[in-house]
Design a protein around this nucleic acid. Sequence first.
DNA 1: GACGCCATCGGGGACGACCCTGGTTGATCC
DNA 2: GGATCAACCAGGGTCGTCCCCGATGGCGTC
Lengths: 213, 213
Amino acid sequence: MTGRVRVFVVDDHALFRSGVKAEIGDAVDIVGDVGTVDEAILAIRATKPDVVLLDVHLPNGGGRAILEGLADGLPNTKCLALSVSDAADDVIGVIRAGARGYVTKTITREELLDAIRRVHAGDAVFSPRLAGFVLDAFAGSAPLASDPEMDRLTHREQEVLRLIARGYTYKEVAARIHVSVKTVETHVSSVLRKLQLSNRHELTAWATDRRLL
Amino acid sequence: MTGRVRVFVVDDHALFRSGVKAEIGDAVDIVGDVGTVDEAILAIRATKPDVVLLDVHLPNGGGRAILEGLADGLPNTKCLALSVSDAADDVIGVIRAGARGYVTKTITREELLDAIRRVHAGDAVFSPRLAGFVLDAFAGSAPLASDPEMDRLTHREQEVLRLIARGYTYKEVAARIHVSVKTVETHVSSVLRKLQLSNRHELTAWATDRRLL
DNA sequence: GACGCCATCGGGGACGACCCTGGTTGATCC
DNA sequence: GGATCAACCAGGGTCGTCCCCGATGGCGTC
């Protein structure tokens, strides 16, 4: 343990990797740098760095492929995405895959060093504004609102739909809404026909998809 | 527009609200402070502050109830959770409900002012380490890894479990793994017995719970 | 070699899921 | 008054689910 953070750099542009090394190599230990997904997975497993600076856009799968390749093991290696892109999809995708931060390449030397140290300490680091993408995706997700498909169902059908999707048997649904099993069958049939589904499993999937549970 | 950030304080302890006002009232505009959920929703809608400092633990629903009550409208009002708790569930819950940051009450005056300004600017602010909870929850995480329950199943049983949980019929599973329907029945029976479940719906729920799909 | 575990099958049975063809009632609309 | 539709119910059938009882062969352990 040198006391200095051990950093690994992944970027398909050798010039950029040189730049990073020149800029921060005096403040952290650059333990390796590569330009391809396959090399990255092997080398990161071998060197076990503290922090991986990860370019999001790479040939053969990009940064996400590397994160997924490293998914098991390496609990002490944090990945910090470093990209020219500030698109919400890029940010969310790479965070979902396991990155602990996301900063754009417009960052200054001091900000990058601070980001590396904070990620290493367990914090999450984002360029201002990008964090909002992640929180938006995490919090609201699809408000779904009034689903036109759902409006085509009668009240009773929607009621039965919800219960069936939760895994209740016809008999249990019947007891709960105080009608006969045959009536439940009728309602379920209507629901399946109207939604063009073929069985209750698809119905469960349909309902989960729309967060009706 | 005064140029100063307009802040609203929600906390059920009047002493704490006084403390906040005394500490940062000279640097930001405190446009209101209340101690209950209902008052908060009404007053925040009326004053439209830039940032709401929100206590997580309140009678009658807590900070989440307020966030849900404010869910519509007020796109320019950001909520910053301010709590004594550093429990992952609290953090994730309030962020999922729409808060843009979460800091603990051990924060210093300067850190709080910085957090308020950053949240107002659209950034997300977390006490170090708490951000990790959110990213873990978001990344789908739950490393689950070696589930002791899962280890008690044989390879073939786990294989069948996954397919059944996805909604395939016995016949479809049989075709997919090239065995007879009877063999699939046997495996499913073993799985249900070992996991102490009673039907495939519970099995689906069990699997989703563990993110095995 | 006996024993246990796994994977592979089978018969038979009880029950649930799903479909089809019917039927009644009551409310609403024209 | 006729047409339409939601909601309710029944009979009867096919197929899926889940259980019981078995059986065989392979493989590793003591």
